[in-house]
Design a protein around this nucleic acid. Structure first.
Lengths: 137, 137
DNA sequence: TTAAAAGTTAGAGCGCACTCTAAGTCAAGC
DNA sequence: GCTTGACTTAGAGTGCGCTCTAACTTTTAA
């Protein structure tokens, strides 16, 4: 096929480093990549798509271990085990939703604190100082 | 004051381990905690509130380094430097909002994939197999 | 009074996810 | 032909954020 990319091109395309690409292959996240006669890796379009999906799992906080499980399912049963794969993704989706909820909860406190500082600053502008407080600042 | 807690009580209250509490103090995230005559730490209510805020920063992904900067500002200028502290939190808020956006973007792909697996499974139910595809699975 | 539990410190160790190095092979341009 | 840069491997190193250990002291409950 015409579109066979070198490792460096794949790095540029996916945002991963060449080191990380080799690391992912070594630890089983990526199946063995085709080689040129020289032994150099030649990535196919499918490989790129798989790597792009992997990075989405990573960016949503899935640990390498779990990605390895998922990758193993895909590799061992390319045309089956959809139920298992789906279950794994559903569990992950739950984790991500939970993570977003937690971020939003804590973010609310940060919003509050920023506003609080605005008020204190305004006090400094008018009074020259702030009245003592025992609240954590 | 009546409400002076031991390190273990604070661990239970905040969800941090006693190790982490000592570590946070050692690296300057928490100012020196009062000691009993024995040398044992005695945490005041204010300390707990500060630690709770710290954990919100951590849980939203703020690195220890940045928390140290923030803690230093609070410690060095307890009744001033509101502008600087506010700027730091505003920058962090931006980072968190960005993080949430990214999670949501990638989550959409995971949703799609789950649905895709549902369809493939349905195909297996009716056809006994799936038609070959060159899309990454 | 004494055993067990909880506290202290300095410093070592760990798990994760990369990230880099060394020593060598291969490819592309002058 | 030769240099420069990209590629290969196995394995070592890094940074982060804890987490644990060893050796010791203090508190608590039986």
């Amino acid at each position: 096929m015409a579109t066979e990319l070198t490792i460096q091109q794949v790095a540029a395309a996916t945002g991963l480093s060449v080191h990380t690409l080799r690391y992912y292959e070594r630890c089983g996240l990526i199946a063995s990549i085709d080689r040129a006669a020289s032994g150099h890796r030649r990535y196919a379009a499918d490989d790129i798509r798989w790597i792009e999906f992997l990075t989405k799992l990573r960016l949503t906080g899935m640990p390498i271990r779990q990605m390895q499980q998922y990758a193993a399912l895909v590799r061992q049963h390319p045309d089956a085990a959809f139920g298992e794969r789906r279950q794994l993704l559903i569990a992950h989706r739950q984790a991500v939703l939970q993570q977003i909820r937690q971020l939003e909860e804590n973010l609310a406190v940060i919003y509050w604190k920023i506003q609080h500082y605005s008020k204190l600053e305004a006090q400094v502008q008018t009074n020259g100082n702030v009245k003592p407080s025992n609240a954590p600042v």
